[in-house]
Each structure stands twice: as structure tokens, then as C-alpha cells.
Design a protein around this nucleic acid. Structure first.
Lengths: 201, 201
DNA sequence: TGTACATCAGTGAACGCGCGTTCACTGATGTAC
DNA sequence: TGTACATCAGTGAACGCGCGTTCACTGATGTAC
């Protein structure tokens, strides 16, 4: 046992993994905050308060605000992907569409898709961030493509990307609607269009 | 002639409309800045500098930054609508699609569609702003619906909204792509999908 | 067992800077006579 | 014509606050003996 390992084990004053757990709590708070208020609308102090801490401790856990935001974006995208997988497992393509173009998704962006909440801000961010995001988006598209009828995988992926773009855009439009009723109509039209488009071509 | 009108005419030291022209220059600079950097990424001082002025004079022309941003958003949306109309006049539906899902649109957001650049931020803004935006969006959708084949106006408007949502989403996705090549592929797929979807259903 | 000491996650005050907003001033353009 | 004065678009310094980041400190938890 090296001197360092000895220290790690013997003089650990908190359960192992405590620091990692705190870090994760902060990342989760940030991932919700950016989806609700945007990346530019997310101060470190707000996130720390929502994680039950004060802002002073932040830099003991993260190199910078940037680092937190990258981790938060990645977590948000992973959660959205898992949600899609669950919906797909239960009811296939149509269930994914209905889960995405749903009222709760409009009303609670902090629990929703980070693409729908943040894509224009992502487009303005660093190549590093955009590369990470592109990989996650490919995951979404591949999942979608699995459920499209006929055509090569290549062709299905292209159609899947367009349909996902429509769903994302439709969620944004519904969120911007000045009334609940108009938002719901927009969602309903989007569901119908997505299902039609999936069969077409 | 009232005393006020007398003043207006006699003691005017600058050509009439000078103030309105300066105001418009600022609004135009702001409309480009918000599309390029986002509403939250737009400081008053930057806009004034880009309009060839210093920031001190701002509040002689605008009640608040908010007021400028609303005017800038409205101008940006009007310009985008005019662009659509021009494309439609020249080449109908397909020309609109190709003009929107074009490389210049990805590369120069400051001259592009404010919906594609700002929809998530719009969704987070006041009811007043969202009501104004909804009216402009209806204009877009009506124009689109004109060019869709068969179906009642009502049905065509619904499809038009979904297709516009797809185009907007696709522009955002293309802008976020980590390489020019991937962006172009996304655009090409979007064009094909939009044209296919317009014929379908 | 009890007392002194070590560790370290988290605290809260402080620093510096950006930015929205205000305001006293300038200087270019005109009028008064 | 020239000289004094008025107007007002635009200037630039300043104020106050929010926010990213730093840092000396606290206090809870453990060890040493």
C-alpha cells in the first residue's frame, strides 16, 4: 500500500464517494437550470443554492463554470436519451413521438430535452461542446431510425434526423405560443405530422 | 399652427426624421446582434458601437433595453418574412425551402431567420413578446400554406407549421454541427425531407 | 476514557469586471439682431 | 456681415448591482496517545 493509498483509506473523514455525490448533485441542479433558463441564464450561485450549498465551495469541485456547464449538458442529453428508450420499449415509434410532443414537455422544460431548450446556444458554443453534442444527437437519430419502415439504414437515419428536427422545432414553437390552447394544437399537429412523415417516402 | 408645431418647424436644428433614422440604425444593429449572439448575449454598448455611436445616448432614444430588443426582434422577423416572399415569388415552395436550408443561412445567422436563432429564448420571454411573435409566425405559416397541394386551408396550415418547424430545427442542428461537411449533409437531408413532406399526406 | 490535534467539505466575505442606466457636459448647427 | 446666444444629438464618466472567482476561516468528524 503506497503512502497515498494509506492516506486515502486511513485519514478519510467522509465516506468514500461523498465528494462525487456532491458533485453529481450540483451537475443535476445545473442540468435542470440550463434547460429552464438557458445557459446564459444560469449563474453559479443559483445552481449551488438549488443543490443545497453556498457558492463559495464551487471551485473545490469544478475547474470552472464552463466545466460544470459541459457536464450538465451531457447529463441532460443522456437523461433525454434514456427517456426515449423507455418510451420506445413500451410503445415503439409512436410512443416516442407522443412522449416528446407532450404537454408536460412544454410545461416542464427543466425535465425535458436539452436539444429543444438549448440548440441555438449549443450552435454558438465551442467545437469541443458541439462535438460532444453531435455524438449524443447521433444516438437519438440511430434510435429513431430503428423504428422507421423500409429503406437502408443510411436513408432511414436521414429521415430520422429530419423528423427529430421537426419534433424539436415543434416543441420550441409550442413553448413560445401565447396560450396553452395554441401550444396544445401545435403539439397535436406535430404528432400527426411526425407519424405521417415516418410512413411517407 | 400651434406653439408646439411652430417649435417643431422653426427651431429644428437637424433634418426632420434624423432621430427616427438614428433609432432605426440602432434597431437594425440590435436585430443582427441578437441573431448572432442571442438576446442574453447582446449588451447595449455593443449594439450602440455597431451603430456607430457611444452607449451614453441610448436612453434618449429608447425607454429601456427591453424596448430595443422587442423592436429588434420584430424587425428581424419582418425581414425574414420578406426574404421568404421574394424566394416564393421567384421559385415557389421549393425555392423557399432551398433559400432557408442554405449554407449562407448557417454561416451568417445575423442575416438569417430570427426563429431559428432565438426560438428557445422567445419561449422564455414575456407574454407581450410571445404574442407579437405568434402573429409573425402565423404570417410565415400562411405563406407556406399557400404553396402546399390539396387539403383545406386549415389542414394546409397545420402541415405548413410542422414543415416550418422542421426547417427551423434543421437549421439549428446544422449550425451546431462540428464540421461544415456534416452541416451541409444535414441541410441537404432537410431539403429532401421538406419537399417529400410537402407532397405527402 | 478524555484531551489535544489534524483533516477537509463547506462557508461567507471580498475582489474585479461587465453591464444597464443616469447625468452633466460638449460642440455642431442654427437664430437674433 | 458679425457676434452673442439657444438648441439638442451625442459623449463619456460615474453609479450600482450581478456574477465569476478567490481565499481565509469554521466546524464536524475523525485520530493520537
Amino acid at each position: 500500500m503506497s503512502a497515498k493509498e494509506h492516506m486515502d483509506v486511513v485519514s478519510m473523514r467522509y465516506e468514500s464517494g461523498h465528494k462525487a455525490a456532491t458533485r453529481k448533485r450540483i451537475v443535476t441542479a445545473a442540468s435542470m437550470h440550463i434547460r429552464k433558463h438557458g445557459v446564459k441564464g444560469t449563474p453559479v450561485a443559483d445552481v449551488m443554492r438549488e443543490a443545497g450549498l453556498t457558492h463559495g465551495g464551487f471551485y473545490a469541485l469544478f475547474k470552472s463554470k464552463e466545466a460544470l456547464l459541459r457536464a450538465a449538458l451531457a447529463e441532460a442529453l443522456d437523461l433525454a436519451y434514456e427517456g426515449f428508450c423507455r418510451a420506445a420499449a413500451v410503445g415503439g415509434f409512436e410512443a416516442m413521438v407522443r412522449a416528446y410532443l407532450a404537454n408536460w414537455h412544454i410545461a416542464r422544460p427543466e425535465h425535458g430535452c436539452a436539444f429543444a431548450a438549448l440548440m441555438p446556444e449549443i450552435a454558438r458554443s465551442s467545437l469541443q461542446t458541439r462535438t460532444m453534442v453531435a455524438a449524443k444527437l447521433d444516438g437519438f437519430v440511430d434510435l429513431f431510425a430503428t423504428y422507421l419502415p423500409d429503406g437502408s439504414l443510411r436513408v432511414r437515419r436521414r429521415r430520422a434526423k429530419a423528423i427529430f428536427g421537426m419534433m424539436m422545432g415543434t416543441v420550441q414553437i409550442a413553448r413560445a405560443a401565447p396560450s396553452r390552447q395554441q401550444a396544445n394544437q401545435t403539439l397535436a399537429d406535430g404528432i400527426e405530422a411526425a407519424i405521417t412523415f415516418a410512413k411517407a417516402s
